[in-house]
Design a protein around this nucleic acid. Structure first.
Ligand code: SF4
Ligand code: SF4
Lengths: 162, 162
DNA sequence: GCCAATAGGGATATTCTATGTCCTTAATAG
DNA sequence: CTATTAAGGACATAGAATATCCCTATTGGC
């Protein structure tokens, strides 16, 4: 049970896009090169962000991606769900229906206790992700990353932003 | 990102085993038949429970499984981790190391903010599962399930318990 | 208008995991 | 001694994640 690596990629890309000046775009090519990722495949993750409405895109030589909202309005959950999907991690196959003692026409109402508990745990995971904003991440990163590296990375990105 | 169906199977089996009288065992065959599952494959899930020390086993014609502890001493997390593993769902591939602006010999200390936040969410999921005991499940099930079905299922199991 | 660069997306291949089956071995009750 | 069991290794199948390739429409710069 692993999250796809696209989740990691999308979070990193959003962190970069959060530092992009208003109105400018950064291309898949630049994001892929910066993170050392396969351009074509990273593109699928970015399409996920686009379809979820988290980023805006534009075509042409200066085209690429920019955030559709302020970093303070974007949560980790938004980004994770955009590429990983919104479905629950616990799938109920209703095996209680196979109970040989069950009366013929008998039909349970709703999910049983097992499913409910697993789904509550799922929701606890989502709630935690919902509580962290992209702006929180940028703030923490700016403290963690050495000033030199932070600055040169920013310039590297600006050089390539359309 | 789905949990394996073995998780569901293991939880159901533990719920059944929780109702088993002291000192008796229930076989894979009976558990598989009761839930309508492939015996050989369910066996792998039960082996997981056994390796984690959650159940005791015995061989021979009257052999099978029984809980190694009281239902109040067994949590959902114990059972889920026994079959799903204890590893985190967010895998960090350290793509920050590919940053072209990084000085040659530069080496980050520890996981970055992204990984830390994802791992906190993971821990929130685990904490929720840790907070629910097998005895809580049995209590809820006993209220949810019609008395007749509960009783006949119990008898079905006792008939086959060694 | 023309060209180069871009996002979007369909088709396909590859790798890995989950699922499922089969068989052998050692232990145990009757 | 026999039947039944858990344990586990070997294998087969299905499906998801990963990755590449190619085509289309759009856009900016010339
Ligand atoms: S978890 Fe509950 S709802 Fe799902 S199969 Fe088991 S009994 Fe049915
Ligand atoms: S999540 Fe953090 S630790 Fe993991 S690759 Fe990205 S930067 Fe590195």
């Amino acid at each position: 049970m692993n999250l796809k690596s696209q989740v990691e990629w999308a979070l990193h890309c959003c962190a970069i896009l959060a530092g992009l000046p208003e109105g400018r775009y950064l291309s898949t090519k630049a994001l892929a090169e910066f993170h050392g990722l396969p351009k074509e495949y990273l593109s699928k993750a970015l399409q996920g962000l686009s379809q979820a409405g988290l980023v805006n895109t534009t075509l042409g030589p200066t085209g690429g991606y920019r955030l559709a909202r302020m970093p303070a309005e974007l949560t980790f959950l938004d980004i994770v769900e955009a590429v990983e999907g919104k479905s629950r991690t616990f799938i109920c196959n209703d095996i209680r229906a196979n109970n040989p003692c069950r009366p013929a026409g008998f039909c349970e109402e709703g999910p049983c206790a097992i499913a409910r508990i697993m789904w509550e745990a799922d929701e606890a995971w989502r709630e935690k992700l919902r509580s962290v904003k992209l702006s929180d991440l940028v703030e923490t990163l700016s403290k963690d990353i050495p000033r030199d590296l932070w600055k040169s990375s920013f310039e590297w990105v600006l050089d390539r932003a359309g």
